[in-house]
């Protein structure tokens, strides 16, 4: 076998291992989701705890997968949508596990977290090419690497923030009415639990700000224009602005309750639009996309 053939068959082998590992990770997230759903249906803590333990396993395996991809591509592992979806799924799960470690028997936010992590993995596996390809010249930039890494990290944090917000809003009436614990939440810990949502959004905001800043710095170096009102850029600005309103509304006494929570959830929806629904609204209204870099 020639040298080149050896390289190609080695790369093909590593890719085959990587793809199967990625499917395994998606499967683990799926099992976690089922366990959390059983917890929701039965109100028993056992399945919830098992879900979290399983999620640790998923996150550790996924970390191995990301390292393998880094070794395979000899570059930062978040430069194509296939890679950044994987990065997003991993960071969402690890961000969740990090805040979850201080809770006692609260598992409901795990439902949205694992659903999205699994969804992101499946979307990457089923619709994107897993090939490790040479990057086109404009993508060969440190700014671009930071841009993707931090923007997606902020999205991950916003997912966890939103899942806490949704659980809080749905559980609050019954906890307040019945004064009895529901899914590990009671009158004593409900507000502290909810506070995590704000803290996470606050944590994600500078990351998203840096994501946008580095994106602009990259565009400025690559194309000589830091901002082009391309739909993806615009949606990230919308997400940023909605979260700015959310953070502000937490300082306005009359907006602190439902209005603020609504802004947090809206921010999450805008974030989803940024990376999968950029042209969805336009398509829904039958408006053609004539943008240069629209994906």
């Amino acid at each position: 076998m020639s040298n080149l053939e050896t390289i190609l068959s080695r790369d093909s082998y590593i890719l085959a291992v990587e793809i199967r590992l990625f499917w395994l990770v998606a499967l683990i997230y799926g099992v976690c989701l089922i366990l959390y759903l059983i917890h929701l249906a039965t109100k028993k803590t056992g399945p919830g705890r098992m879900g979290t333990n399983m999620l640790w396993l998923g996150v550790i395996t996924h970390a191995g997968l990301i390292l393998l991809r880094t070794f395979e591509g000899q570059r930062a592992p978040f430069q194509t949508l296939y890679e950044s979806l994987s990065w997003f799924a991993w960071s969402t799960s690890i961000a969740y596990l990090y805040v979850e470690r201080r809770w006692e028997d609260i598992y409901l936010p795990g439902i949205l977290v694992t659903a999205l992590s699994m969804g992101a993995c499946l979307y990457a596996l089923l619709t994107r090419s897993p090939a490790v390809e040479p990057l086109s010249p404009p993508l060969q930039s440190y700014w671009f690497e930071w841009h993707v890494a931090l923007a997606f990290l902020s999205y991950a944090v916003f997912v966890v923030s939103c899942s806490i917000e949704i659980v809080y809003l749905t559980i609050k009436p019954s906890v307040k009415k019945g004064l009895r614990p529901e899914y590990g939440l009671n009158t004593n810990n409900l507000e502290t639990f909810h506070r995590q949502s704000f803290r996470l959004a606050l944590f994600g905001f500078p990351l998203l700000t840096f994501g946008i800043f580095s994106g602009a710095a990259w565009a400025n170096e690559a194309w000589g224009r830091y901002w082009g009102w391309d739909p993806k850029e615009t949606w990230s600005l919308i997400t940023w602005t909605v979260f700015a309103i959310y953070l502000h509304s937490m300082s306005i006494p009359r907006w602190k309750g439902i209005p603020a929570s609504t802004f947090n959830i809206l921010g999450f929806i805008c974030m989803l639009m940024t990376f999968i629904g950029v042209n969805w609204l336009a398509r829904l209204l039958g408006i053609p996309s004539l943008h240069l870099y629209a994906m």
Binding site: P231, T234, T241, I245, W255, I287, S289, H291
Partner: peptide, 24 residues
């Protein structure tokens, strides 16, 4: 601070139009 939120909200309206209709 409320006024800032309102202006930011109005700007979001423009951004959404800009994201839907192909600019330039």
């Amino acid at each position: 601070l409320k006024t800032s939120c309102i202006f930011l909200g109005i700007l979001i309206g423009f951004y959404i139009i800009g994201a839907i209709f192909p600019q330039d």
